[in-house]
Nucleic acid binder design. Structure first.
Length: 581
RNA sequence: GCGCCCGUAGCUCAUCUGGAUAGAGCGCGAGACUUCUAAUCUUGAGGCAGCAGGUUCGAGUCCUGCCGGGCGCGCCA
């Protein structure tokens, strides 16, 4: 469906045609831009159903004051039979009150669109590449990766729902020193699997016992061939084998969260394809890479600092504080050197790039943005590139911080978390805070079945609706779309909130903030529960009226559509809409 | 020292990318409850949006400077 079927877009179009008419009459100058004209629900419901700032935004251009221009606009709007009143308020807002029918019709629109209600063409098929997770393949996924994984995945779904063509990508850092360490750690476990007593894991190797199966697999595959061989003979082989194992493990961990990437891009492959060399050659041609000497870092005084000539990328030309080396003094590529080439590779098949990073990488945002700007502008196709920083999650249990130690290899893994609280709780909770703010995750609180817990609250609303549908069907009732005029004012408020879903989707997608969907669902669930509670005091407000099939049918139809919107929202977040609790 | 992020009710957080009188939940005060799922409900108090300027019809939102908190700052990844 297109967004023109939703109520806000429909009235936005009506206002646009009024403005066009005023342009013809000469009240507004020809060719006026209506970019800043907004049609929104007023914050205060007593102001009406819809509000527009058109008169305030355009008054200057029309060489008049906002209230006078508003008069011209309202005069035309009032001719529309579905608009009950158009009032000028405050500095020049125009408040519209709509005929009840206009709102009731939105319920039909929800029913008609079903799982597609709220879907938008905002993205215009733009190809967006989102790179997220990209944890080093040296161990299982742990808490530090979790938030970025969920935020990235929800953002991907959100952008898809808003009409983008999304690629979900994972960058495997399988070329640096850490995977050499992994290889050596795997070799140790390999010797262990061959029956050797390895004792304490030496400092500098990965101690976690997740490498035990990898060692066993290597022993099975190679026998004792590499037990006493020099490192040079097995390092690369063991590295490749171990990385494969780690990636399998990471994929399994991600699957527990319902996350599946389209592309796993290997840094090692990038190197063997010569991409960094290509990028360097191109940058040198354009005088964006030169050989130079870095200044010693400020603030702290490194004891072993030695000035060395290195190939430097002119990131200062694009807003960075310092030019950055793309190769080390031993001639190998720096992480940045490879990452630069990697982003250029991604840019070749996308109209926009998004990276989701941990906040501890904030310091490298400028250089990579500089690199993307240099390379894509140079290639004649500059593309937008966002880096979303995701802040730390502090794990708590009943108000006490959960202790973790990297040294001993004991950290809370994603598998542990999902096992303890469930996928839906992990995902939803990670999305109930804006990503750039720090958050606490308290194991005790997130599984609490109470109003304080947003996951539960939203799912409970959906379960209540489902349960009502089951019960009413059993009693012989059915939702009826043609009795909606029987609905009362409180029910109309619920419809108005549900009707906002498409706007929320577009706003969240535009801002690239999936958490807005979570907050909206919490509001919608709250409104539903409040409405439900009316039935506790006044049985006449209950959904099922055993002596009134028409009223029951109308309310069931309403409930059905609220449930649909909750399902659509939860589906963006990757959280299940449960039928019962 | 420099860069980035954050400062909103006692606490945890929203505020729809500049709109009207800044909203929820927890906690606190006062009431209600043999239920279409009480896995609660109603209601009250509580604010100089860190501080000071600026931009404009209008600023929690944008800009500048301070203050406070967090993160980062080698050729690591």
């Amino acid at each position: 469906m297109s967004e023109s079927q939703t109520i806000y877009a429909a009235y936005g179009a009506k206002i646009a045609s009024v403005l066009a008419a005023l342009e013809q009459e000469g009240v507004l100058p020809a060719g006026t831009s209506y970019r800043n004209v907004a049609v929104e629900p007023p914050r205060d419901a007593s102001h009406g159903d819809l509000a527009t700032n058109a008169a305030m935004v355009l008054a200057k251009l029309a060489k008049t004051n906002p209230r006078e221009l508003a008069g011209h606009i309202t005069a035309k709007l009032e001719l529309d039979p579905s608009i009950k009143s158009a009032e000028i308020a405050g500095p020049g807002f125009i408040n519209l009150r709509l005929d009840r029918g206009a709102w009731l019709a939105e319920l039909g629109a929800i029913a008609g669109a079903g799982a597609d209600y709220g879907r938008s063409s905002l993205g215009e098929g733009q190809r967006v590449n989102i790179e997220y997770v990209s944890a080093n393949p040296t161990g299982p996924m742990h808490m530090g990766h979790c938030r970025g994984a969920v935020v990235g995945d929800a953002l991907a779904s959100l952008l898809e729902f808003a009409g983008h063509q999304v690629t979900r990508e994972y960058y495997i850092n399988d070329a640096g020193g850490q995977v050499d360490t992994l290889s050596r750690s795997a070799h140790l476990r390999y010797r262990e699997a061959l029956g050797e007593e390895i004792g304490e894991i030496p400092e500098g190797l990965y101690p976690g016992d997740y490498l035990v199966p990898a060692g066993q697999a290597l022993a099975k595959k190679f026998g004792d061939k590499y037990r006493d061989a020099p490192e040079s003979e097995w390092l690369a082989i063991f590295r490749a084998e171990a990385v494969d194992k780690m990636i399998d493990m990471i994929k399994a961990d991600l699957a527990l969260l319902g996350i599946h990437h389209d592309i796993f891009a290997s840094e090692a492959t990038l190197h063997s394809a010569g991409k960094p060399d290509e990028a360097e050659a191109w940058l040198r041609e354009h005088d964006l890479v030169y050989d130079g000497i870095l200044e010693a870092p400020k603030g702290k005084t490194p004891e072993d600092w030695e000035p060395v000539e290195l190939p430097l990328f002119r990131s200062t030309k694009f807003g960075d504080d310092q030019d950055r080396p793309i190769k080390k003094s031993d001639g190998s590529w720096t992480y940045f050197g490879a990452d630069l080439a990697y982003h250029f590779q991604k840019a070749e098949n996308a109209d926009a790039l998004i990276d989701i990073w941990g906040a501890d990488h904030a310091g490298t945002v400028k250089r990579i943005k500089a690199a993307v700007a240099a390379l894509t502008q140079g290639a004649g196709r500059p593309i937008p590139f966002d880096v979303k920083l995701v802040q730390m999650v502090h794990l708590m249990r009943g108000g006490e911080p959960v202790k973790m130690s990297k040294r001993s290899g004991t950290f809370v893994t994603i598998a542990d978390m999902v096992d303890e609280v469930g996928k839906d709780v992990v995902r939803f909770t990670m999305l109930t805070r804006k990503p750039e703010a720090q958050m606490e995750f308290d194991f005790a609180k997130v599984i609490e079945a109470s109003k304080d817990n947003p996951v539960f609250y939203v799912q409970y609303a959906h379960a209540r609706i489902s349960s009502t549908m089951r019960k009413s069907m059993a009693e012989g009732f059915a939702p009826q779309a043609d009795k909606l005029h029987l609905l009362g004012d409180e029910e109309l408020e619920l419809i108005k909130l549900a009707a906002q879903f498409p706007r929320i989707v577009e706003a969240a997608a535009g801002a690239r903030e999936p958490h807005r969907i979570a907050f909206y669902l919490y509001d919608l669930a709250g409104a539903f529960h409040a409405h439900w509670n009316l039935g506790n005091d006044q049985p006449a407000n209950r959904f099922i009226q055993s002596d009134d099939a028409d009223m029951t049918g109308a309310r069931l139809f309403l409930g059905q559509q609220i449930g649909q919107v909750i399902r659509n929202g939860l589906s963006i977040l990757g959280v299940e809409a449960v039928e019962e609790m």
